[in-house]
Simulated scan of single mutants.
Amino acid sequence: MGMPRKIVVEFGDTFPHGLFAVSEVTPARDFEKSTKTNSVQTIDEDSGCPVWTLDVMDGDPEARKADRTFTIRIITKVQPVLPPALPGLPFTAIELQGMTASPWVDTRSCSAPDEGRSHRCRARQGWSFRCMGIRAPKNMPGSGAAEQKAA
């Protein structure tokens, strides 16, 4: 048996300092099927459900600048709705449900060898996160409000 491509992870273990939505939920574009005039939404191969994207920020104060914000993919039949933001906060605190993580190698920092120099590779481990739903964090005031799960 080989290592699975998608590893099931717990939200609290992955983001112990919380996670914040910094954009609206939008349809993930299928770049192979879309044209300039017709945007086609990505469909998840395993579930057959549409894929949605959301830009988020990790609440970890120790997170590197390059790792602080990233995009997650949400797999649900209907477009998820973000929980209400707390008054006075610029971002919405969220908790992801049914999370998986897939490793990938980020080679954007690699450079080809220059004349007289060897290859310089500063590749790093990256993670692609997917979830099945979004809700307000359990420990936040008003967390009993709108909970979004996969239909």
Score class of each variant (00 low, 15 high):
D60V: 00
L82S: 05
V51D: 03
M99Q: 02
E62M: 13
T107A: 14
L82Y: 07
I94Y: 01
T76R: 14
A63W: 02
T100C: 03
S47F: 02
T53E: 09
R108I: 03
T71D: 04
D55N: 09
P87C: 05
I94S: 07
A93T: 03
L86Y: 12
P80V: 06
G88V: 01
E95K: 04
L82C: 03
T53N: 09
F70W: 06
K77C: 12
L96S: 06
T42M: 15
Q79A: 15
S102T: 12
M99D: 10
G59W: 03
P103M: 08
V105C: 11
K65H: 15
L89G: 09
L82I: 08
D58V: 03
V51N: 01
I74L: 09
K77D: 14
A66L: 10
E62H: 11
T92G: 05
V78K: 15
R68W: 05
A85K: 13
G48W: 03
G59L: 03
I75L: 11
L82K: 02
G98D: 04
Q97I: 09
E62V: 14
Q79C: 14
G59M: 01
T92L: 02
M99A: 02
I72M: 10
D46G: 12
I75W: 12
Q79W: 00
G98H: 02
I43A: 11
